[in-house]
Design a binder for these strands. Structure first.
Lengths: 243, 243
DNA sequence: GCAAAAGTGTTGGATCTACACCCATGT
DNA sequence: ACATGGGTGTAGATCCAACACTTTTGC
């Protein structure tokens, strides 16, 4: 028996994938294409999403959507906002598209973002024409998904400063410069390498491994890992008022 | 013509009101009471909320709910989370209650919180048996509303450190000690008065008025105001990484 | 004059910022 | 040997934390 869809509630997923080698923060999107005789009616990209099932938690919908798209489970996930403007799907192309789908015109969507490594996703098996786009170079985007992506990105920019989520975007073993590059990509700023390095290395939960990079054509860098356990023990909230 | 309700989507509002004189951060709740012959079936408190109308933005639903409850418009408002667990309304009392209401069992609710001053609300005109409760001394709470309140409170605790929302809870003219008391109430911490005072007074957007408290039986304190305009001009984001 | 809360300064430690060169490695 | 990015130290400024007494007012 197939689970029953709730026709006016969906989940949309902004999948952020960081590519350590190109230093690019990417968003995973799927192609939306519709042709009528000669004319291309719709040809753009949207986020991946799906209806919530009647007996399903919202978090589980998001997890299911990610799994279908990437095969991955257990990635960092955050529900960050609901989009429910009555006119959010009223663009011409969106209306054409919705005609072919079992979709209520007044659908509200619960938006999640995921953090993972681009390299962990094998797009070749994907049936949806999924593609990575740098978050700052998005293609033509359908529905209100550009807005959703930008709000997810804003939340990520803010959260990465105060929570250790940066490591969700990096491989288990990373170099200090990789962390710095990632911060710079996300925030669009330059960071002083010496200050950054000192700051990170002094954290107890950033652990130097007995390993260096291999296969690089330059001085191989020291590898580190992040220990969530130590972080949870060591971290203490401060109540610094910074208004 | 009455607007049409969406039966499976609601908005719930956590209305935070600060009482400057008792130094209490309160939540506004309404009584839920149902009697059957001799037996009291339901007798507790819930948040105020309502269905979203078909052609209504979520933000507008929240504003409408607040207005009906308090008469107020233009208060600080934040959509902070969606609650959509399929079993969120499956408690026995909730089921009894829902029987009398036009309610879908699988309703997801978009949760907002509002910030205002307790004194701005006139409860005497209210038809809902609305009452203020200190956020740390809640009564018996129905549905999953205690969870919703606690998550709103967590968000408020975090946000008041980095955004100037504290002033939404205070009268236009306030003393430095009132701000300090409010921070202490919200965060449950003690703050050093000298350090706090220096910090606040040095902000360009905290403006000393040519006025002091009147009608107090002690040394009257200097009054200040907060200028949002100056704040917006002066404030600059820093990218301090504090993981 | 007394009760009650307002208001006031200093010091030591920590943390941030700015800044430029040498080093280790693979090719 | 050279190109590439890895790695390193210091000094000045700013900011935070800790700490206790005097002042002003209404009664």
């Amino acid at each position: 028996m197939k689970p029953e869809k709730i026709l006016n509630i969906s989940v949309d997923c902004v999948v952020f994938g960081y590519d350590t080698t190109t230093k690019s923060l990417n968003v995973l999107m799927i192609k939306r294409y519709l042709k009528d005789k000669q004319k291309i009616l719709v040809n753009d990209y949207v986020l991946t999403g799906y209806h919530v099932y009647t007996h399903e938690k919202l978090d589980d919908t998001a997890t299911r959507v990610l799994k279908e798209l990437t095969g991955l489970t257990d990635q960092y996930k955050k529900q960050f906002k609901v989009f429910g403007d009555p006119n959010r799907l009223s663009n011409e192309k969106d209306l054409i598209w919705i005609k072919n789908e079992e979709f209520n015109l007044r659908t509200i969507t619960v938006a999640y973002y995921f953090l993972l490594k681009t390299e962990d996703v094998d797009l070749s098996k994907n049936t949806n024409d999924a593609e990575w786009f740098p978050v700052n170079e998005l293609p033509q985007v359908g529905f209100d998904h550009e807005k959703i992506i930008m709000e997810a990105y804003d939340d990520l920019k803010e959260k990465c400063l105060s929570e250790p989520i940066i490591f969700e975007l990096l491989p288990d073993k990373f170099t200090i410069n990789e962390v710095q590059d990632l911060y710079q990509s996300i925030l669009g700023i330059e960071i002083d390498n010496r200050n950054f390095r000192r700051k990170l290395i002094n954290k107890k939960y950033i652990i130097a491994l007995d390993e260096k990079q291999i296969g690089v054509s330059k001085k191989p860098a020291q590898l580190y890992m992040f220990s969530k356990d130590i972080y949870d023990k060591v971290f203490q909230k401060n109540y610094l008022i910074t208004i």
